[in-house]
């Protein structure tokens, strides 16, 4: 493609669009987290957060998601230097750690339901499941995205020229991670 044009800022348009999207997502999660906070302690009946939130388990899943971010940057580095084997290893590791996180969340949700907290039980249930459910949905999309990249790598179509595709997926993944950093503190630790 000889006609490929240079952009006015020299920045790639897709990456710029994606940062704009991430900015937009800040307001999405900002609204969810704000709602969680203003409704904190307003439930007229239990279960309440400190009765039910499992800090040890969630600490492990938080650590798991942080490590997936490490795997993600290593995947990008491997793709960028053309190292196919390690690219696949780290992409698979990121997706796997994401799946583990979703597994923790599934465990957490089902145990809450068994203990009598559903999305309809009280305000805490509504805000908690909606906020963490939105986050979990984002993780699930990220896992599908990462697996798609993994398939492209096995097809031999994820060379260093496609590093930007991995970088953008990485931006998404890390953003989902930082949202969890906030949720972990705001929802779990600051009860």
């Amino acid at each position: 493609m000889t006609h490929a044009h240079v952009t006015s800022t020299g920045l790639d348009s897709r990456k710029l669009a994606f940062w704009t999207f991430i900015g937009s997502e800040c307001l999405l999660f900002g609204s969810l987290i704000s709602t969680y906070l203003v409704y904190k302690g307003r439930s007229v009946r239990g279960p309440t957060p400190h009765e039910i939130l499992n800090i040890p388990v969630t600490s492990v899943s938080t650590f798991d998601l942080l490590m997936s971010s490490l795997a993600m940057v290593l995947a990008l580095a491997a793709v960028a230097r053309g190292d196919r084997v390690w690219a696949r290893v780290w992409l698979a590791a990121t997706a796997f750690l994401g799946l583990v996180f979703l597994g923790f969340q599934a465990y957490e949700f089902t145990s809450f339901v068994h203990e009598g907290l559903t999305i309809t039980t009280n305000l805490f249930g509504s805000t908690f499941f909606t906020l963490t459910g939105f986050h979990g949905g984002h993780v699930a999309v990220g896992v599908v995205w990462l697996l798609t990249l993994l398939v492209r790598s096995f097809q031999g179509k994820l060379g260093p020229d496609k590093a930007l595709n991995v970088e953008i997926a990485g931006l998404y993944w890390h953003f989902v991670d930082v949202v969890w950093i906030v949720i972990f503190t705001v929802v779990y630790l600051l009860q």
Binding site: T9, G10, L11, K15, L16, W19, T20, I22, G23, S24, C26, L27, F29, G30, S31, S34, S69, L70, M72, V73, E167, G170, L171, H174, F175, D177
Partner: peptide, 25 residues
């Protein structure tokens, strides 16, 4: 991890403005 430290300042701007708005809200 998201490279904002070494990347273009425009990305930082386009991310921090909405972030600050969300925080303000």
């Amino acid at each position: 991890y998201m490279h904002l430290k070494s990347d273009s300042k425009l990305f930082t701007l386009i991310f921090s403005l909405p972030l600050l708005l969300a925080l303000g809200v």
